[in-house]
Design a protein around this nucleic acid. Structure first.
Lengths: 235, 235
DNA sequence: TGGAATCTCATTAAAATTAACCATAACCCT
DNA sequence: AGGGTTATGGTTAATTTTAATGAGATTCCA
């Protein structure tokens, strides 16, 4: 049973449409790792993620995956592709089990008479633009180190929730590169791991990394060296 | 004098609004190379490009520019940033002389009552999503060679209209890399330049480059070598 | 008006950088 | 113990950076 009040786009849609929505929406259940649609597919349906988490990714000719983003229910997927009658630019895969609601484009068109619905759709689209534009920023401006530093600043919780493999995928880095960067940050005393929780010791350094795209080799080396000498009573 | 019928978003807006638009729009003239707004600026105004051509680009910490796209009048610029109250993700610079119309966000909000206007705005947003998603594709999936090949397939005219410098900027390549790729394509007899016009000799090869991301080193070398030998009568 | 000086753009080569790729070892946990 | 995960070393590929050069155009001024 779908509660449209929970879905931002439909929440403010005139209630008279809700009954009709219930009748015209087609529900489909997916298991973990199953594919909702492939990059290049076309569709006349809106995909509404009602339950679970999905990820969108592109596949390069060599087979490597570039992750666009992860999305949690409730949200709309690929609505612009439908509006523009364009093929999906990415593959959609479930990370968990979940449910997708399918709604034919023709229905949507009718709802645009409702200002609140239009506004909801516009909001949904603008948030996609923001998302893509931040992706462009990450992929074109930030170096690998800056990507990691940026994620630490923005969403430190991810580092304690997900495996390093998955974080690397989110950042479109190889696990090796990611691991090396983490090691480097530890060596620089920018971060530390205490009882399996990552803690930021020097957030100033992280900001500098994001802004300049580089970690100065051994920022704290001299300071550490002095401390070492002090401990040994030589200073 | 602005003709709103020429601007897709306003064209279908109820005519009763046109008079009001004329009164509330603030026109600003720009010269070539002047900046409309900088990456990070915020604004409560819609920017409507009425005359001329602009380009949007990001600047990396090292000072290099990543071009997002070029746009010709008439079009809307950065409408999503305004909707989301987000800073502009890129700098906007005039390539030619031109005119921008500024319209306060509050006005826009009112026009959303008009379904055609909403739809126009939605269209404008979806086209931005498509644009960004194709940019993501170019920057994350395509190799340098594939980028050039792709542009040759999609818009050969650009190669005869713009300087190599500018084409390189559009593709976010250094002029050197771009030049090398062009030389390579010539050597591979994929393209040829006749009276300053670039012509594609082997479009099949271009498609293969885009799909596989690589030019097989000297695809035609063996064939050419055989031909050479035949000409010399040694075969 | 001719020609030197200056600029811009294009090309080429060599060096440096970044991050992926490959292989292998270490590490955990259940 | 063994599979998934993480770490690390060595190598390679792609592209940028730096530098040098050339080819046209433009300016400037005697």
């Amino acid at each position: 049973m779908v509660n449209f009040n929970e879905i931002p786009m439909f929440a403010n849609l005139d209630k008279k449409f809700h009954k009709e929505l219930h009748d015209s929406i087609y529900m489909k259940r997916f298991t973990k790792n199953s594919i909702v649609f492939y990059e290049g597919d076309e569709s006349d349906y809106f995909y509404i993620l009602l339950e679970g988490t999905i990820r969108l990714f592109k596949t390069s000719p060599k087979g490597s995956q570039v992750q666009i983003n992860r999305m949690k229910a409730p949200t709309m997927i690929g609505e612009y592709a439908c509006f523009e009658k364009e093929p999906f630019p990415a593959t959609c895969e479930f990370i968990t089990d979940g449910v997708i609601g399918l709604l034919h484009f023709d229905k949507i068109y009718k709802y645009l008479d409702d200002k609140e619905f239009s506004l909801g759709l516009i909001k949904s689209l603008t948030s996609k633009v923001i998302l893509l534009s931040s992706l462009v920023h990450k992929e074109t401006i930030l170096s690998s180190e800056a990507k990691v530093a940026d994620l630490m600043i923005e969403k430190i919780s991810i580092f304690n929730r997900l495996r390093n493999n998955e974080i690397a995928a989110i950042l479109n880095l190889t696990p090796e590169t990611f691991s090396r960067i983490i090691s480097k940050f530890k060596k620089e005393s920018i971060i530390i791991v205490e009882n399996n929780k990552l803690k930021i010791l020097n957030s100033e350094a992280l900001y500098i990394i994001v802004e300049t795209n580089t970690v100065k080799e051994c920022t704290n080396c001299i300071a550490n060296f002095k401390k070492q000498l002090q401990l040994e009573g030589k200073l």
